[in-house]
Amino acid sequence: MSKKKVALVVEYKGTEYKGWQAQKYDVPTVQKYLETALSKIAAHTVKVVCAGRTDASVHASAQVVHFETDAERSEKAWTLGVNSNLPKDIAVVAAANMHSSFHARFSAVSRRYRYVIYSSPLRPAIMSKEVTWTHKSLDISKMQQAAKVFVGKHDFSSFRAVGCQAHTPVRTILNFEIYQSGQYIVLDIRANAFLHHMIRNFAGVLMTIGAGEEEVSWARKVLEARDRTKGGITGPPEGLYFVDAEYPEEFKVPKVALGPHFLPYFEEPSYELPS
C-alpha cells in the first residue's frame, strides 16, 4: 500500500515545553507529544516535519506539519482522535490529505509571527505566560517608524543568535506591521524565513526605542552594524507566536483564523505571496 501525505495545522502553548523539536534527552517538546499521539492513531511510528521550529516557551496558533502514513484514517481521526491523546495545551485544529510533493518546510514561501507586548505599570496575572510584559510606556509611532528599516532584503547579522546555524544571515522581510489595542502592542512580521532569535531581537530593539531610551535612527545603526553585540537585549520568549505559513495555492493547505485568538481583530493589509 502506498503511503499518503497528511498535513496538520497545530496550535500549542509553549510554556511547559523545551521548544518544538524532539531531543535525544527525555525532555518535554511539542514534537515529541504530537508524534506519540499520531503514532497511536496511525498504529505505526509517525515522524513529523514542521514549517518552522519554535524555542522553549514560544507558542503557535497555526504551526503546519506533515507526515507520511499508510493508515486509512478520516479527518476526524487526525483531529479529534489525535487531540484525545494530546496534553491540553497542544491541539490539532485542521487536517488534510496532501499531494506527495508537499513539504511543510520546503514548500512554504513565507512564515509569519506575532510578538505580543503588554505595556502596563503593573504586571498581568492571567496572561503572565502568554505575553511579554513591560512596565514602561511605549511610543508606538516611534516603533512603527523604526520597523520600516527592516522591511526588504538585508543582512540581519545584528539580529541573529550567537549560536544560529543558518548558512546565511540574509533574509527578506515582506511586511512588518505594529498594532496597538489598549495595553496590547503587537509586532506582526512576515518573511521568507527567519534567523534564530531574530524576532525577539527585533522586539528588544523596538521596545528600547519605544521607551525613549534610543532614537528611531538607532534601528538602522544596529542593522548596518551587522554585529549582534550592537543589538541590545533579546526580548523574552513568552510573547512570541508562530501564526501562519503560506504555501502556493495548489497545495490547498488548511487555513485557520489568524491568532493568537485572545487578540482583537486588526485590519489586515493586502498581501501577495512572494515569487
Rank of each mutant, 00 (worst) to 15 (best):
M1P: 13
A7E: 08
L8E: 11
E11P: 01
K13D: 14
K13G: 11
T15A: 02
Q23W: 04
Y25L: 15
V27L: 15
Q31S: 06
S39W: 04
S39I: 06
I41R: 09
I41Q: 07
A43N: 15
V46N: 03
V49M: 12
C50S: 12
A60T: 03
Q63M: 14
Q63N: 13
V65Q: 04
V65D: 07
H66D: 13
A71C: 07
R73Q: 15
R73G: 07
A77E: 09
W78P: 03
L80W: 04
N83P: 02
N83L: 05
S84N: 13
K88Y: 09
K88G: 11
I90R: 02
A91I: 00
V92G: 04
A94P: 08
A96M: 08
H99Y: 03
H103E: 12
A104S: 12
A104W: 09
F106R: 09
S110T: 05
R112I: 01
P121Q: 06
P121K: 09
L122P: 03
L122V: 15
L122Y: 12
P124M: 00
A125P: 01
K129R: 14
V131D: 06
W133M: 11
T134D: 11
H135E: 11
I140N: 00
K142Q: 13
Q144E: 09
Q145A: 13
V149R: 07
F159I: 09
F159H: 04
A161W: 08
V162W: 04
V162I: 14
C164T: 03
T168Q: 11
V170G: 00
R171P: 01
I173C: 13
L174R: 11
L174C: 01
I178R: 02
Q180D: 00
S181N: 15
Y184A: 09
I185N: 05
I185W: 02
L187E: 03
L187S: 08
L187T: 05
A193D: 11
A193F: 02
F194Q: 04
R200Q: 10
R200G: 04
R200W: 11
N201D: 10
F202V: 02
G204L: 10
L206Y: 08
M207K: 10
I209A: 07
G210V: 03
G212M: 10
E214M: 15
W218Y: 14
A219N: 07
K221A: 12
R226Q: 15
D227P: 07
D227Y: 05
T229F: 13
G235N: 06
P236T: 04
P236F: 05
P237W: 05
E238N: 14
G239Y: 01
Y241L: 05
F242R: 06
D244V: 01
A245V: 02
A245R: 08
A245L: 03
A245N: 05
Y247K: 03
E250G: 07
K252Y: 06
P254C: 09
V256N: 07
G259N: 12
E267M: 14
P269D: 10
P269Q: 10
P274Y: 04
